[in-house]
Structure formats: C-alpha cells, structure tokens
C-alpha cells in the first residue's frame, strides 16, 4: 500500500482505534484506509467489533484512543463536519413505520436542511431509483423487509452523502431482498460514493467490495482485495463427494499426490476438498483420471475459486461462526462450534 499518499486521497483513514466497554475490548487497534470512491467490506463474525467501528466512524461513540478521519475531518474534533459528509444505514432503521415512504423521506430531507423544493425533487428521484414509487403513499409498516431496508437507505441518501456506512445492510432479508439491496449498493458505488459496509456474509463482501478487511475480536486479521485474500488460501479448490462411504479413503489416496496440499476430508458428508493452486484445469483432468482408475464414483466434482469461507478458515484456523449460503456443503468441525447449543 502506498503509505505516502495524502489524506485527500482517502475518504476514510483510521489509525490505531481502540474502544473498550468496561472489560470488553471491542476494538483493539484498528488501522485501515478507504480510497475515495471505493467500497470497503468489513467482514467479521458476531461480536467482532464491526458495529463499534461504524459507530466510532459515524461520530456516535468517542474512541478511547487512536483517530479516524472522514473526508479529512476528525470524527471527534470535527464531528459536525463529519456528519454533513456521511450517511448511516443498516440493521436498525430510522424510518417511522406508521408514516408513509414519502413522509419519511420528507422528514430526513428536512433534517438534512434541504429546502422544500429540493426535498420534493430528491424524494421523487430516490423513490424512483429504489423502486418505491407505487408504495410511496402507503404506511411503511405495510412494506416488505426489503422495501423497508430500501426506504431506510433512501432516507439516509437524502443529504447526498459522499461517504456511506452500511452496517449489515442485508441481515435478516430473504434472498430476493438481499439481491435487491446488492443492486442498489452497486449502483451507488458506480456513482462514486465511498461505501463502508459490514457484513457477516462472506459472499456479500466478495460480491460488493473492492477491498476487504477481516476483523475478529477487535483486530484486523487480514486485508486485501477479494482475489488477494483468496490467493492466501492457495488458489483454486477442487471439490467432490464420494458416493460410497467405503471408498472415501481410497479417493483420498487417489488424489493425494496431485498437489503439495493435503486433501481436507469431511467424513460425514463424504466431501473431499483439495487446494490445487493455479493449475486448476490440469488438476481437474488428472483427478478425474485417477479417481476413475481407482473405481471411485463421485458426485459434483468441480473446481471453484475459494470462497471467503476458505479465507476465514485459513486466516483464523476456524470457520466463520455465522452460517450462510456460501458454505459449500463443507461440514463444520464439531470442535469449533461455540459451546452451549
């Protein structure tokens, strides 16, 4: 990373951020920068410190030490200027469900000190963009989860922020609602808004973020682009399921010599995964030949780019604790489950 870059190139600059709640150390020295106009995905399991970081950056919580600059403004000393530059949306919505979509946008527009004319223009524009025109004059409590979330995001955009914070923008949404949010977030990114989004969904960061930081227990444990992180895992992964349980050992033996890496085996699901570096297709052909020679029948043999699940596993030594759609049938080791369930 170019450490000589001026502040002006970064929409967000965070240095040595610490925050504790009594004995709980929510942030233990976080550093990162977000180039203007890019999307940073902050990835981490429950309790990692994602929300705490967002709250410090949005002036809601003073840090214990360290500093954070948004568009060059210090979040503690120049909080008012920061609040004029940012918007926050996420899990907790600021919309008032008894009021209509249009009324909610009116309120947020006025609180951003837009004049009446600007509020009207901006409201029409955002309702259109977020596909809420038909629902605009219905109370928001009649909206679906995805619509509420879109309205909330629209409300936060009334002030035309240059930096947008999204704290778990899709948690609790159904797959359809998630895709809708992704689409909207992509559009915003395309228009040059700097976005920091937190997520527990590994595929979400993969899908939306230019850069990703992985935090756990208040520390950044990995960062880079999605591809860089995946390279840390060791390139492509070859995966298949053995149909006959009795032949699992034989299958492992057959593919073992393919690369330097040892195959990962999940006996329960009879699933075998092997890192094959960047010689994916060669390895695929070779694996098929060997398995055939060993007379092992397989199911779903495929090559995939490693998911961020694999990254998490490689960096922390255990799977991300929150389940989601990206786990590709790989069973969790019983030992890493949190106790008590």
């Amino acid at each position: 990373m170019d450490t000589t870059a001026r502040d002006g190139d970064f929409a967000i600059r965070v240095e040595g951020l610490h925050k504790s709640f009594g004995k709980v150390h929510a942030l233990r020295g976080i550093d990162f920068v977000v180039p203007r106009g890019s999307v940073l995905g902050v990835l981490g399991p429950n309790g990692a410190g994602k929300t705490t970081a967002v709250r410090v950056l949005t002036t809601l919580l003073p840090p214990d030490s360290g500093r954070a600059l948004i568009e060059g403004h210090d979040v503690v000393r120049d909080a008012a200027a920061v609040r004029r530059a940012i918007a926050l949306a996420g899990q907790a919505t600021a919309i008032q469900i008894e009021l209509t979509g249009r009324e909610n946008l009116w309120i947020m527009g006025r609180l951003h000190h837009l004049d009446r004319q600007d509020v009207r223009v901006r409201t029409a524009e955002l309702l259109e963009r977020f596909e809420l025109v038909d629902a605009a004059d219905r109370p928001a409590k009649s909206y679906s989860g995805g619509m509420k979330r879109r309205l909330d995001l629209a409300a936060s955009l009334m002030g035309d922020p240059s930096v947008l914070f999204l704290d778990e923008p899709t948690s609790g949404l159904d797959p359809y609602g998630r895709l809708g949010m992704w689409e909207v977030i992509r559009q915003l990114a395309a228009q040059g808004t700097t976005i920091l989004l937190t997520t527990q969904y590994l595929d979400e960061a993969d899908e939306l973020a230019d850069n990703i930081i992985v935090i756990e227990r208040g520390q950044v444990i990995a960062q880079g682009t999605s591809d860089q992180l995946k390279d840390r895992v060791g390139g492509d992964v070859l995966e298949f399921t053995v149909v006959d349980r009795a032949l699992v050992a034989g299958a492992v033996a057959a593919v073992s010599g393919l690369t330097d890496a040892a195959p990962r085996v999940d006996p329960e699901s009879r699933r075998i995964a092997l890192q094959v570096g960047n010689r994916g297709s060669q390895a695929l052909v070779e694996a098929v030949r060997r398995l055939d020679a060993a007379r092992v029948e397989t199911d779903g043999l495929a090559l995939h780019r490693p998911s961020l699940d694999d990254v998490f596993l490689a960096v922390t030594g255990h799977a991300a604790e929150s389940g989601n759609g990206t786990t590709r049938g790989r069973g969790r080791k019983p030992g890493v489950r949190p106790a008590g369930d």
Binding site: L88, A94, L111
Partner: peptide, 13 residues
C-alpha cells in the same frame, strides 16, 4: 432501543 436515536444523531441536525 431500536437505534432510531443513534441514526438521528448521525444526521447533521
């Protein structure tokens, strides 16, 4: 509790 006050406090109001 619902975080509405948090959200309002992040506005320039």
């Amino acid at each position: 509790k619902q975080g509405v006050i948090d959200r309002l406090r992040s506005l320039p109001m």
